[in-house]
Nucleic acid binder design. Structure first.
Length: 604
RNA sequence: GGGGAUGUAGCUCAAUUGGUUAGAGUGCCGGCCUGUCACGCCGGAGGUUGCGGGUUCAAGUCCCGUCAUCCUCGCCA
């Protein structure tokens, strides 16, 4: 180095530019860059270093005397002072935005050294997620993740601005709150000052935002962290973020209109994408009947076809008996599916059975009766069923006979599977869909009682709940989901703002007046103190951000995601705690927990 | 809670029917090289085959158990 160590440390090491911004206009300027050593190329008399930060990469040239004076390793953090030089025609790097210039180093300071990283910081690296999560700070230096997180920031900020412009107030609600009796398992936090009592982390700010409506904050929104202690999936994390909102003195259409404006603004601002507004709308019952799903992917057809009439009069006993027993028989046409082998069709049957179907009947249609197990019930004439299915020779028809819910579910899942595997799903499009009028209640298979399809605060379509002795399964709710390309992005509803109706719904859900008082007393009380009609909605930000990036797994849009077993591999959470800490919160482990905790401790 | 897949060098993977000293690419370290840009060339280090047990003359390979990761059914008001 040309200067002594003392002069160096006295000198200002701070950057004048980022590693992504130098262009030809700066040739001749003295600049300072800060960044990480991305790659090194030692040519003996001349030494190249690519210096990286989240803005880009700039080539730094170290002449022999500087290169010989320092030791550089991968991911070292440097401050480089020097002059910007033109690269010249033959030396330009077309692949780099800064490729027309380079920095001729005059002074290099190592701000920080680095262990050899566990994997290389490359855009297209194929490292096991386990290793990436363990060393997330290295993984997060990679371009795709930096771009994803930057996109997420822009997306959320655009949404925030849109809500502010609509007159909404951003209001925070508690993270330490009380356990709810229904819904997902709560994450619990033991109280030190209230022995034997626990806070719960919120599954959503639902009750708080309703109480804000009662309090007169008629337009609320929040970027809210939510927690649910349930098993995970690629599209599900134990803690996740919602863009949550609620409005007073409105009905469904008002909520939808706000969201249509907000999302149009958000996609325009953050992605330069124009989305079609207003969004399409479809009732739940229609979605189930046509697509076998409450979140239909409408990018391809292959809709379910009801063949109940044909089945009722067919000679196939299973079909006939199903119809006679009040069930349904429906089918799908797999275009060009006649090419599928028996083995491939059996794989489809396995899939259908995963979702409750008892079997999958199939038929390769033709005028003469076609082929497959159903062919012998055609009496040599396939035309009538072909016409009803809208099938032609060369297609494959598959059928499920069962209770309506099972028929729709299994064929709906089959449809999505076939749509993907047969390449029917086109490019990602931005055709949003409101699915409306979900059932108010569902049967709980285990207890035989009733549960809310959405949540117990959802308004019924009929404030009288159908009167005394009504068939609860037939009641529709004023809830709605927002769906995009087969993904549920969010859900909401008009709420119950009448204390008496809320109590009646609790009662139908089997919550006794004593329980209501104990667990929801504060809400019922609030509703009895002047509650305006209100409605709201929340989207899963992780999902919509992932989808807007074309990703199906949430992990690449989150800085510190957890594993399928809800562990953080970087900081090794959850962990055991000292006996003293447990004592503080009045917790004693049982024998099984002690053993598991000791085993985990021994491994670590 | 159930089902499936995976686990070998820092990383990504290979290793025939159970058979010699577990290999390759990449990264790392050293040497050479004045225009590279995923530089190149030469050399080197690097292994509890996830862990525990079993079968066998012999186990990365077969069996049992266990742990971790991923996908998934249930679950997720």
């Amino acid at each position: 180095m040309s200067e002594s160590k003392d002069e160096l440390s006295a000198a200002d090491w701070r950057r004048t530019h980022t590693c992504g911004e130098l262009r030809s206009e700066r040739v001749g300027c003295k600049v300072t860059l800060n960044g990480w050593v991305d790659s090194r190329r030692d040519h003996g008399g001349i030494y190249f270093v690519d210096l990286r930060d989240r803005y880009g990469v700039t080539q730094v040239v170290l002449r022999e005397e500087i290169a010989d004076s320092i030791k550089l390793g991968p991911e070292y953090v440097l401050s480089v002072r020097g002059e910007v030089a033109a690269r010249g025609e033959s030396n330009r790097n077309e692949g780099l935005p800064t490729g027309d210039v380079e920095l001729i180093a005059e002074r290099v300071e190592v701000l920080s050294t680095s262990e050899v990283p566990p994997f290389e910081v490359l855009d297209d690296l194929d490292t096991a997620i386990e290793t990436r999560l363990r060393y997330r700070y290295v993984d997060l230096r990679r371009g795709p993740l930096q771009r994803n997180l930057a996109h997420r920031s822009r997306f959320i900020n655009a949404m925030r601005r849109a809500f502010e412009d609509e007159g909404f107030l951003e209001i925070e609600t508690p993270i330490l709150t009380r356990a709810t009796p229904e819904g997902a398992r709560d994450y619990l936090v033991p109280s030190r000052v209230h022995p034997g009592n626990f806070y719960a982390l919120p599954q959503s700010p639902q009750i708080f935002k309703q109480i804000l409506m009662v309090a007169g904050y008629d337009r609320y929104f929040q970027v809210a962290r939510c927690f649910r202690d349930e098993d995970l999936r690629a599209d599900r994390q134990p803690e996740f973020t919602q863009l949550d909102m609620e409005m007073s003195f409105v009905e469904e259409e008002d909520v939808w209109a706000v969201w249509e404006r907000v999302l149009a603004h958000t996609f325009r601002e953050s992605m330069d994408v124009e989305v079609t507004v207003p969004f399409a709308r479809m009732r739940y019952a229609e979605a189930m009947e046509r697509f076998g799903s409450d979140k239909p992917d409408r990018r391809f057809g292959m809709e379910l076809v009801c063949v109940g009439e044909w089945a009722a009069s067919s000679e196939f006993g299973v079909f006939r008996d199903t119809i006679a027993g009040g069930g349904r028989v429906m089918g799908l046409v797999v275009s060009g599916g006649a090419e599928l082998s028996r083995k491939q069709i059996e794989a489809l049957e396995v899939l259908a059975k995963d979702y409750g179907a008892r079997g999958l009947a199939w038929w390769k249609p033709a005028d003469d009766g076609g082929a497959g197990p159903l062919a012998r019930f055609m009496n040599g004439d396939g035309a009538p069923l072909m016409e009803q299915m809208g099938a032609t020779e060369g297609d494959l028809c598959v059928f499920v006979a069962d209770r309506a819910a099972i028929v729709q579910r299994s064929l709906g899942e089959l449809r999505v599977h076939l749509g993907r595997s047969r390449g029917l799903v086109g490019e990602t499009s931005w055709e949003f869909l409101w699915v409306t009028h979900f059932p108010l209640f569902e049967r709980d298979e285990e207890s035989g009682g009733w549960t809310s399809s959405h949540h117990p605060f959802t308004a019924p379509e009929d404030w009288n709940l159908g009167g005394e002795g009504a068939d609860l399964s037939s009641l529709a709710s004023r809830s709605y989901d927002l769906v995009l390309n087969g993904w549920e992005l969010g859900s909401g509803s008009v709420r119950i703002h009448r204390s008496d109706v809320q109590q009646r719904v609790f009662e139908l859900l089997g919550i006794t007046p004593a329980e209501q008082e104990l667990k929801f007393g504060f809400l019922l009380e609030a509703l009895a103190h002047g509650a305006p009609p209100h409605a709201g909605f929340a989207v899963g930000l992780d999902r919509i951000v992932a989808l807007s990036l074309g990703l199906e797994n949430l992990r690449d849009t989150l800085p510190f995601p957890k594993t399928t077993s809800a562990a953080d591999l970087m900081c090794a959470a959850p962990s055991r705690v000292s006996a003293e800490q447990l004592g503080d919160v009045h917790i004693e482990l049982d024998a099984a927990a002690r053993a598991a905790s000791d085993a985990a401790g021994a491994e670590a």
